[in-house]
Design a protein around this nucleic acid. Structure first.
Lengths: 194, 194, 194, 194
DNA sequence: AATGAATGAGGGTTCATTCAT
DNA sequence: AATGAATGAACCCTCATTCAT
């Protein structure tokens, strides 16, 4: 599955990611994915075992890419607050584009018919991501910037969740929160009073 | 078995709410809803025009009931903080049971094929709910308890969203937040520093 | 089945005849028949065994009434040509109202699931009707008015068919044939040249 | 099995035409059509949008083929009477095979849910057919062979209808009319007395 | 490797019929 | 006798998947 045409595979990934973002798993048709990817319907099956496999691989693909970029930001040697602000910019953009995809998949995951291997790998990837984020917040706690009444993992989780406040805001026709709004919200809640 | 039966309808509502909570719209089968409701498949169609109609009516049913109870709490003449605490208890329970149903439906709503009337009614109900909550927070702002750097509507929206932090917590195997945790989180963020 | 309320039964007959005239057997719903008859859906089943039984009884009912009237015309002691003209008036009216019902039923008859008794009775009624008509034409032949190159039964059959020329005329947007047109057509074809 | 296959489509047409001839639209099952055509149920839907679409296309297919053959006969340069006789042979055969199909569809047409385009095309085809036939009879009128007390269009319509006299004949157990009988019937009615 | 015609299991929906009242 | 709520068999249609080319 690695030697096949990388380009074809990526166009399938793109097409699938777009469609799975827009609509429900069952509302996305394989034919549509194929058409938007510019390939034949059968071609998808030379790269992926099934629609569910495609969804899963598509998720992993996106999450891993996200983690790579996220990791790059973390490894710049800036101070905590500057890095945090960078992360906000990065996450804000990422969620704007991918939040629906991620949510949809996570809602579906528990019932996806996947191999043991795939499930384990999925868990691993997600937990690796959470670990990365929570390590960063731990640093904030250690430096006395972040309150320590919640664990770093809990903070990391809430941090992720914040970025879809805007989904509800737009549902109710309220103006969306800017990155700055998000950042202010976070510091108000999790920063030690200065 | 002669008069269109409130009991039958309620058992369909219950069964549907349970199943729509558990799984995706397209994974819930009418046959399953019927079976769990203890009625025949055709019976559902004497009460609801279609599966989509059932989902929608089911949502409205739950939300309206929720709003009635919510409203009851608001109209007790306790002081702001006590009432807020009551609301936290109430919302926490409600979301524990219904959060998945509500989220699923809201994610689906934009693509549901509903009559103009239904769509309008849906909007109305949701906005009525938000208005109710935001009025309450406005009172908090007016009384100088809540910060006024966000509008009461924005606060009301974030307030709702808080209650599904636990979905992610449980996904990552973290211990869930208790009502108290939620309450503390809220006051930390939205209460004026004392 | 004879002692029950005659009025209810007739209103069912009327409703059914109207609907079976307008649309295909399978497009007519029992609910619609009941509603138009002003009775409950279950009531129909106290008078008729099934939808097919209703269709059949409805046909017999109409045909027998038609034959009674037809027979009355035949038994006036007018001369052949005068009687024929009377019959044209009568048939023209009858077909205008009932032709679609009759045709639909005759097309369906061969596949109707009826008891042996019903089938035989149906045959009997139809043949009685044909006999009545062909006897009349036989008289025309005997009196030397009608050509004798076709049997009276053949003429009787074509005679019936003539009255739905208008169905095609109206399909093609041509002006329909009047009774006079029909009569002229008939005499041109079947009368001995004078 | 790669190119959308003319053969597959024709076998569906044949199967559908046979079944729609035999029974009512609602009594013909898609599964049955598929089975008789030797294809899978889903295959039909790669060629036709719906059962109604299939019925309609099936009608058009048959009528157009009929018109092509009809047209071929008309364009042989024989004299009027000879051509008329040829047409009788041709129509007699065609109606023997297809009359039930044609009638069933025409009875259904007004209530078929078709696109504006399909409806218009259907009208066009039928009227083209009538025009072709009536032009021919007009020639007969012009040559003084056919009476001119009816329009050529009226004659063309009645001409078509004649060919299902045999349906009633067989219903009543009378011997069917031969082509010669039909021809004689026609000349008696529509030819100027010689 | 790539394709898309063919497939058929599966599901939403309809409606004739039943039966408790 | 009359009713209409309840039923479930039956049917149209969709779409993930296969496979011959």
């Amino acid at each position: 599955m690695q030697k096949k045409n990388e380009q074809t595979m990526n166009s399938i990934f793109d097409s699938a990611a777009n469609l799975f973002s827009e609509k429900d798993f069952h509302e996305v048709k394989m034919e549509e994915i194929a058409k938007n990817a510019g390939v034949g319907k059968g071609t998808i099956y030379t790269y992926f075992k099934s629609k569910e496999d495609l969804l899963f691989k598509c998720l992993i693909h996106n999450v891993e890419e996200h983690q790579k970029n996220f990791s790059a930001i973390l490894s710049t040697n800036k101070d905590f607050k500057t890095t945090l602000r960078d992360i906000f910019d990065f996450m804000y953009d990422f969620f704007k584009k991918k939040s629906r995809l991620i949510h949809r998949i996570m809602a579906l995951m528990p019932r996806l018919k996947l191999s043991e291997t795939d499930i384990n790998y999925g868990h691993e990837v997600f937990h690796k991501g959470l670990d990365m984020t929570s390590s960063f917040f731990q640093r904030g706690i250690d430096e006395g910037i972040i309150i320590n009444i919640m664990t770093s993992r809990q903070i990391a989780i809430i941090f992720q969740k914040m970025f879809d406040f805007n989904v509800l805001f737009s549902f109710y026709g309220e103006p969306e929160m800017s990155v700055d709004d998000c950042y202010r919200f976070f510091t108000k809640t999790f920063f030690r009073q200065e």
